[in-house]
Amino acid sequence: MWKKVFDWLDERLGLNDIYKNLLDRPEPKGNWWNTLGSASLFLFILQGVTGIFLTVYYTPSPDHAYDSIQYIMEGVAYGWLIRGIHHWGASLMVIIVFIHLLRVFVTASYKYPREMTWLIGVGLLLATLGMGFTGYLLPWNQRAYWATTVGTQIAGAVPFMGDFILKALRGGPDLSALTLQRFFAAHIWILPAALTGLVGVHLYLIIKHGESHFPTRED
């Protein structure tokens, strides 16, 4: 019965082909360091799911941001768990993505024909750091407020156009409701959209080129 249903779907959707090309690819001999990309993808999805859940109760307004997070932590069933996963998952994702980059560097996997995979990966690292930076402000507590004050001030130190960058980031000369709102927009729309697109290309390139084998003495 299930076989019939599956065959019917497979004939129309090509499920077996997808499985063969995506998951049943030949792999060079590797080790646990080769799993960090998958770990990054898993964390990205986990952050996406818990983040979507958090927006059910979170309010990006200076009046309510802090209170709404207090409510998530103490008022809602398992709110502490959802936010806890998002909070710790964020730090873990930055660490894993960075170690993934180190692994690719050490095994020289960024070389021909994978230069674009590497460059897009750098973009993914920057977008991940951007997620960390924008997400840090959202609790709107003292630490978040001053971390963003300092962070945007650093961006403002760029020669010539520093003042413009500072104002563009903050939505004005000072931290305000506009800052919180644009950081929220960047955190839940702009950066995730960029990340999703880049992850798609990154994965396409990995499937196209296959994974690189570790360099040998002859290399």
Binding site: V49, F53, A77, Y78, L81
Partner: peptide, 15 residues
């Protein structure tokens, strides 16, 4: 472990 708490998290105000 994530899915079940998430369901409670979503429907909590209704309970």
């Amino acid at each position: 472990a994530i899915g079940l708490p998430a369901v409670y998290y979503l429907i909590d105000p209704a309970l």
